[in-house]
Amino acid sequence: MSKRTEKTIVDIAEELKLSVSTVSRALNDNPNISARTKDKVKKMARKLGYRPNALAAGLRNNKSKTIGLIVPRISMFFPAAISTIVQNKLQEHGYNLIICQSNDSYEQEITLVNTLYSARVDGLVVSTTLYTTDFSHFDVFKDNNIPLIFFDRVPKDYNVKVIKGDDYVGGYTATTHLIEKGCKDIVHISGPLSCNLYVERVSGYKNALQEFKLPFKKSRVFYHELTRDNAWQTCEKIFAQTPYPDGIFASNDTTAITIMEYCRKINVRVPEDLKIVGYSNDPRTEIVTPPVTSVDQYPVMMGERIVAALMELIHTAPSNVPRYSQEIIPIQLIARESSAGTAKSSGKKK
């Protein structure tokens, strides 16, 4: 099969007996071209299957009007919510968005960074993998003064713009809430400590226990990727022996919901026997039974701040851009039935 020949503005001009410059201006809605001519040109463009060459235009003006976004998994609530907000806000500024997912693979993240650089994006927004500790593959953006923003999962010592949630306060608030509800034996299920989110949430958990003079037990903290399967396996470990905990702080809502499912299986009542707090305020937390207490990360606020910061970087001379700045987005605990009432002893196996 022969390769399809792309139609150009020259073909449109020949069909309509117009100059190439007139066709070009009509396609770009130049105010000096009449509405009648614009309409004719656009109809012919559709008829011929003309596609504007955005890459060629970008090479001419050194702007692609495209931003790259790399997230760990688009299936997760928080990065999905951020992606939607960022895309909608960028469109208001005349920019398109290329969304990529690393699938929490460091090697894939490197490939995506290089691909988006080659695609001449005007800026890059990234939430890193769980295992990214070397950020040198992002140097190509820094060294060429292309706006680069990290959000949510961010580097600790890499001089760029960072927008992140208040994860220490989130961990502290979730744990304090369980303690104030009467819990004295609180398990924490965390993600890997290679990621800033979980380092900070664990720190908040520890400090809340310390403040209320409750012991920190290494055996009551579990570290792994926060998937349903991993959460189920952890539940099997937690409930394999007595005494059962009376509270669990889970670092994501998938884990919190899985814990409730497991508790139903073994006849542990939530919240009477066990109180649960999740993280992210995933919409599922409101519709499961009982509804799950969770920490809201304000994705709308974060998405809006990402785009505002990106526009500022794009429109500011590189010499005037600070090498490093950090914005902290607040959190809020949304209390629901999974942590209601006062904790009871759950020392006996059900």
Rank of each mutant, 00 (worst) to 15 (best):
T5V: 14
I12N: 05
E14F: 01
E15D: 06
K17Q: 14
S19G: 15
S24G: 15
R25S: 08
N28R: 14
N32G: 06
S34E: 09
A35M: 07
T37E: 08
K38S: 08
K38Q: 13
K42I: 08
K43E: 14
R46H: 05
R46E: 06
R46A: 03
L48G: 03
L59A: 03
R60C: 01
K63N: 14
G68K: 10
P72L: 13
I74N: 07
S75K: 10
T84Q: 07
V86C: 04
K89A: 12
E92H: 05
G94F: 05
D104E: 15
T111L: 13
L112H: 07
Y117Q: 03
R120P: 03
S127V: 01
T132V: 08
T133D: 13
T133P: 06
D134Q: 10
V140Q: 10
F141P: 12
K142C: 13
L148A: 10
I149R: 11
I149Q: 07
F151P: 03
Y158M: 12
Y158N: 11
K161I: 02
G165F: 02
D167E: 02
G170E: 00
I179K: 07
I179S: 11
E180F: 01
C183Q: 11
C195L: 07
C195G: 01
L197D: 09
V202F: 01
V202H: 11
S203I: 00
G204C: 04
G204E: 03
Y205E: 01
A208W: 06
F212H: 15
L214T: 12
P215N: 05
L226I: 10
N230F: 05
I238R: 08
I248W: 06
I248S: 08
S251R: 04
S251F: 07
N252R: 12
T258E: 14
M260F: 00
D273A: 10
K275C: 09
K275I: 09
V277L: 10
D282V: 05
E286K: 11
T289S: 11
P291M: 02
V292F: 06
T293R: 06
P299F: 08
G303W: 02
R305T: 14
L313V: 09
H315C: 04
N320I: 00
R323G: 14
S325Q: 15
E327R: 02
I329H: 06
I334E: 14
E337P: 00
K348H: 13
K348T: 02
K350V: 03
